Lab assay of single mutants.
Amino acid sequence: TYYTVKSGDTLNKIAAQYGVSVANLRSWNGISGDLIFVGQKLIVKKG
């Protein structure tokens, strides 16, 4: 599943929405910090 980042989104918010961990979101998307951008597509695997 792909999720497109919207204004106001955070990794924590997206992780909670999908029932996954922030660590997994980072791993699946090659993100090291907490910086995400509006319009960015993130890979999300269902929890």
Rank of each mutant, 00 (worst) to 15 (best):
T1A: 15
T1S: 11
T1W: 13
T1F: 14
T1M: 11
T1G: 08
T1C: 05
T1K: 08
Y2T: 15
Y2R: 08
Y2D: 06
Y2H: 11
Y2W: 14
Y2A: 06
Y2K: 07
Y3K: 02
Y3T: 04
T4R: 07
T4D: 06
T4Y: 13
T4E: 15
T4K: 07
T4F: 10
V5T: 05
V5Q: 00
V5E: 00
V5K: 00
V5Y: 03
V5I: 07
V5A: 05
V5M: 03
V5N: 01
K6D: 06
K6S: 15
K6F: 05
K6R: 09
K6L: 14
K6M: 13
K6A: 11
K6I: 15
S7Y: 08
S7H: 10
S7M: 10
S7P: 09
S7V: 09
G8P: 03
G8V: 04
G8N: 08
G8F: 06
G8M: 06
G8Q: 06
G8I: 03
D9T: 02
D9R: 00
D9I: 02
D9N: 02
D9H: 01
D9A: 02
D9V: 02
T10G: 03
T10F: 04
T10I: 05
T10V: 05
T10E: 06
T10R: 05
T10L: 04
T10N: 08
T10S: 12
L11W: 05
L11N: 00
L11C: 03
L11Q: 02
L11Y: 04
L11E: 01
L11F: 05
N12T: 11
N12L: 12
N12K: 13
N12V: 12
N12I: 10
N12C: 04
K13F: 15
K13C: 04
K13T: 15
K13Q: 13
K13H: 12
I14N: 00
I14A: 01
I14Q: 00
I14H: 00
I14K: 00
I14D: 00
I14R: 00
I14T: 01
I14L: 08
I14S: 00
I14Y: 01
A15N: 01
A15Y: 01
A15M: 03
A15H: 02
A15W: 01
A15P: 00
A15R: 02
A15Q: 02
A15K: 02
A16E: 11
A16K: 10
A16F: 14
Q17R: 10
Q17N: 14
Q17M: 15
Q17F: 15
Q17D: 14
Q17I: 14
Q17K: 10
Y18N: 12
Y18D: 01
Y18R: 04
Y18H: 15
Y18P: 00
G19F: 08
G19I: 06
G19A: 11
G19Q: 15
G19S: 09
G19T: 08
V20F: 04
V20E: 09
V20S: 07
V20P: 02
V20Q: 09
V20M: 07
V20A: 09
S21R: 05
S21W: 04
S21D: 15
S21L: 08
S21E: 13
S21P: 13
V22T: 10
V22C: 04
V22S: 08
V22A: 10
V22E: 11
V22Y: 04
V22D: 06
A23G: 11
A23W: 10
A23E: 10
A23R: 08
A23L: 13
A23V: 08
A23D: 13
A23Y: 08
A23Q: 15
N24M: 11
N24Q: 14
N24A: 09
N24W: 13
N24E: 14
L25G: 00
L25K: 00
L25E: 00
L25H: 00
L25F: 02
L25Q: 00
L25C: 02
L25I: 10
R26I: 15
R26S: 13
R26Y: 06
R26E: 12
R26W: 05
R26P: 00
S27N: 14
S27F: 09
S27Q: 14
S27P: 01
W28V: 03
W28I: 05
W28K: 02
N29L: 01
N29F: 01
N29Y: 01
N29S: 03
N29I: 01
N29M: 01
N29A: 02
N29C: 01
N29T: 02
G30R: 13
G30M: 13
G30N: 14
G30T: 12
G30I: 10
I31F: 08
I31P: 02
I31Y: 03
I31N: 03
I31C: 03
S32Y: 13
S32T: 14
S32D: 12
S32C: 05
S32M: 07
S32I: 15
S32E: 11
S32R: 06
G33E: 09
G33I: 06
G33M: 08
D34Q: 08
D34A: 07
D34F: 07
D34T: 10
D34H: 11
D34S: 12
L35D: 15
L35G: 11
L35M: 15
L35F: 15
L35C: 07
I36M: 07
I36G: 02
I36F: 06
I36T: 05
F37T: 12
F37W: 12
F37Q: 10
F37V: 11
F37Y: 08
F37S: 09
V38E: 15
V38G: 05
V38F: 06
V38S: 09
V38K: 08
V38I: 14
G39L: 03
G39A: 04
G39H: 05
G39D: 07
G39F: 04
G39W: 03
G39N: 07
G39T: 04
Q40D: 11
Q40E: 07
Q40S: 07
K41R: 12
K41F: 10
K41E: 12
K41G: 08
K41S: 14
K41H: 14
K41Q: 14
K41T: 12
L42P: 00
L42S: 00
L42K: 00
L42T: 01
I43H: 08
I43L: 13
I43F: 14
I43T: 09
I43E: 06
I43Q: 09
I43Y: 09
I43K: 07
I43D: 04
V44I: 15
V44S: 02
V44M: 08
V44L: 08
V44G: 01
V44P: 01
K45V: 13
K45S: 15
K45R: 09
K45G: 10
K45P: 08
K45Q: 11
K45T: 12
K46R: 12
K46E: 14
K46G: 15
K46N: 13
K46C: 05
K46D: 13
K46H: 15
K46F: 14
G47Q: 11
G47V: 13
